[in-house]
C-alpha cells in the first residue's frame, strides 16, 4: 500500500521525502534512474561489472548526500555528477590493483552485448559510435562522453575530473579526432 503510494509521487515529492530519510522514496528514485546512471557508468568504465559497482556506489553516496541536495540542478544531473566522481574514484582504485598503461588500445566487447532498455531509442543510436567510444582511453573518453553525449561545459568537466579547462579542451580535441578515425576503421571493417 505504502509502496504503491510512493510509486505515484511526482519526482519533487520523492526528493523531498528522500531528503528526510524516507527509504521507500529514495528506492523509487533508484528505480527510476538506475538505467540512466548505469548507462553513464558503462560509458565511463567500459566494463559491465565495474559499471554496476560504480552505479551502486553512486546511489549510496547520493543517499548520504540527499540532505544537502538543494535542487538547483535536476536530480538526474546531480546523479550524473556523483556518478562521474564515483567512477573517477573507482578508476584510481582499479589502477592501483591492475596497471593498464596501454588503456587506449584495450577494447571491451562487453559493452556491445548490453541489452537496450528502450529498444526503440537504443536502436536509433549507432552501435558503431558506442564501439568506437569504448576504444578511447578513460581520460579521453570521459571528456568526450561528458561533452558530446551529456552536454557538460568545459568548466564542469574540468571541475569534476580534477583537470584544467585547457586540459579538458585538449583532450576533447584529441578524442574527437581519434573517434573520427576509429569510426572510419570500424565502418570499413563492417563493409
Amino acid at each position: 500500500m505504502e509502496r504503491e503510494r510512493v510509486e505515484s509521487l511526482q519526482p519533487q515529492e520523492l526528493i523531498e521525502k528522500a531528503k528526510l530519510g524516507d527509504r521507500d522514496a529514495f528506492g523509487q528514485l533508484v528505480a527510476r534512474h538506475q538505467h540512466e546512471v548505469f548507462t553513464l557508468a558503462v560509458r565511463l568504465m567500459r566494463d559491465r561489472d565495474l559499471a554496476a559497482d560504480v552505479s551502486q556506489d553512486a546511489f549510496v553516496r547520493a543517499w548520504r548526500a540527499m540532505p544537502k541536495f538543494r535542487g538547483d540542478a535536476k536530480f538526474s544531473t546531480w546523479m550524473h555528477r556523483i556518478t562521474v566522481n564515483t567512477a573517477w574514484t573507482h578508476r584510481a582504485k582499479h589502477k592501483r590493483v591492475r596497471l593498464d598503461p596501454l588503456d587506449s588500445l584495450a577494447s571491451e566487447p562487453e559493452a556491445a552485448t548490453l541489452d537496450p532498455v528502450r529498444a526503440g531509442e537504443a536502436a536509433s543510436a549507432s552501435p558503431t559510435i558506442e564501439a568506437a567510444l569504448m576504444q578511447l582511453s578513460f581520460s579521453i573518453r570521459s571528456v568526450v562522453v561528458l561533452k558530446d553525449v551529456y552536454g557538460w561545459s568545459h568548466s564542469e568537466i574540468a571541475e569534476h575530473l580534477d583537470i584544467s579547462v585547457t586540459a579538458a579542451k585538449v583532450r576533447l580535441h584529441r578524442g574527437r579526432k581519434e573517434l573520427r578515425h576509429l569510426l572510419d576503421g570500424l565502418q570499413d571493417g563492417a563493409q
Binding site: 537496450p116 528502450r118 536509433s124 549507432s126 553525449v149
Partner: peptide, 17 residues
C-alpha cells in the same frame, strides 16, 4: 550520433536496485 546516445539507455543488471 554522439548526441543520440544521450537518449539510449542500457538495462542495469537484475538485482541492481
Amino acid at each position: 550520433e554522439l548526441n543520440d546516445l544521450d537518449r539510449a539507455r542500457y538495462r542495469a543488471p537484475s538485482g541492481h536496485a
